[in-house]
């Protein structure tokens, strides 16, 4: 308990604080994930990222109603603000 207090870690968002300046993985609503270098966050999990790679998972459906295998679409963005209400999880990426 004391150790945790000393290192300033006592709540979930402290994990995010430790990731400032590091690359993080974020899963979002709308079949999307992003990775990017974390520069800012707040209590709503609004985040600001740079060197972002966004991945969108898409399933196309044929005329007669059969799903094609899921495909992904990737996009690179140099600086991105992500609104917190779309965030499902934030994770430090393994380097």
């Amino acid at each position: 308990m004391d150790d945790a207090a000393n290192s300033g870690i006592s709540e979930p968002l402290d994990l995010v604080k430790l990731s400032l300046g590091e690359r993080v993985f974020i899963k979002l609503r709308g079949d999307r994930t992003v990775t990017g270098v974390l520069h800012a966050y707040d209590a709503h999990m609004n985040v600001v990222l740079s060197q972002v790679e966004e991945t969108i998972h898409i399933v196309d459906v044929t005329e007669d109603g059969n799903p094609l295998p899921p495909r992904i679409e990737k996009r690179n963005l140099e600086m991105l603000f992500v609104r917190g209400d779309g965030v499902i999880l934030i994770s430090p990426t393994q380097q």
């Binding site: 400032l20 520069h39 991105l80």
Partner: peptide, 24 residues
Amino acid sequence: VRYVRMAARSVDTTLLEDATRREA
């Protein structure tokens, strides 16, 4: 809003990280 995209040069990332640590 889902995202806001902007140019990297319009953001001072060091300043932003410091401000985030301070506010936290």
